[in-house]
């Protein structure tokens, strides 16, 4: 696979919030069709990492580089990163009162097409995605996340991902706040949208979602670093033993070093 075909690569990412270091050197390579799970305890900096990768203005990237399809997006504002193929599914999606889902998606899709003729198929595509993701088309006329239940918000995130066709999808705790039924529906949506051209970084605290969305790689994230990487079996191990065991091992190693 050539450089340009690798959907996502980040090198030695360091992030600070109000000059306090939170992410301390993260390197990831995510190929098309790969699902990477990033697991870690609360407060480990997982959300900070994905928000900073997307270009959140409150998080400053103190060093490191980000590549999407081989292109360096490190200096780009968030909307340029999006147009280059990055997508972030928010842990807490925001309400935009008065803006319908259809108009919002139209604006977002329009922002990335080269000429307006490509917009002709928009309605058809949108309806097709509603059907594919088993979402009620009445969603289209509701205001974005305004009065949505937790499950509806997460489904709308997946719908957006389907419409925007990213190369790399960062899913920030997409499982949080969902009951088991909602979790299954959302997981099904993720599996439907993900194909060989898109890489996924799935950030989660719990192993639960990984029963439905099967990762190819699992990374354990602690204290702003990836401390372990392995195959899908590691998720089950974590579930059984908890984060504490790894935490102890990591600190022992740190002491020795």
């Amino acid at each position: 696979m050539t450089e340009a075909q690798i959907p996502f690569r980040c090198e030695d990412i360091h992030v600070a919030i109000e000059s306090k270091p939170v992410v301390k050197g993260v390197t990831l390579n995510i190929k098309g069709g790969e699902i990477h799970a990033l697991m870690g305890p609360n407060g480990s900096g997982k959300s900070t990492l994905v928000n900073a990768l997307m270009g959140h203005p409150s998080y400053s990237l103190t060093s490191g580089r980000i590549f999407v399809n081989g292109e360096n997006v490190t200096e780009m504002p968030p909307h340029e990163r999006s147009r280059h193929g990055m997508f972030l599914a928010f842990q807490y999606p925001l309400a935009i009162p008065g803006v319908t889902v259809a108009n919002f998606l139209r604006a977002a899709v329009k922002a990335r097409v080269k000429d307006d003729s490509e917009m002709k198929a928009f309605r058809k595509t949108l309806l097709a995605e509603f059907e594919r993701l088993e979402i009620d088309p009445a969603f289209a006329t509701r205001y974005v996340n305004d009065g949505f239940s937790g499950g509806e918000k997460k489904r709308l995130e997946i719908l957006q991902m389907a419409m925007l066709k990213p190369s790399i999808a960062l899913l920030d705790e997409t499982d949080s706040g969902l009951d088991i039924d909602a979790l299954q529906i959302v997981s099904k949506g993720i599996n439907t949208v993900v194909n060989k051209d898109v890489g996924v970084l799935l950030v989660t605290h719990y192993q639960r979602i990984l029963n439905f969305v099967k990762p190819d790689f699992v990374h354990v994230f602690m204290g702003g670093r990836i401390v372990r990487s392995g195959g899908p079996e590691m998720a089950a191990q974590l579930e059984k033993e908890g984060y504490e065991k790894i935490e102890k091992e990591v600190s022992r190693i740190a002491e020795v070093a």
Partner: peptide
């Protein structure tokens, strides 16, 4: 700021994001 970032992460520039929020307000 979070609303703007949310819309930016979908490919809208900061100005476009503000515009969309304002349009929604008057909707």
């Amino acid at each position: 700021e979070e609303q703007i970032f949310y819309l930016q992460s979908r490919g809208l520039s900061e100005d476009e994001a503000r515009m969309l929020i304002v349009n929604g307000f008057f909707e």
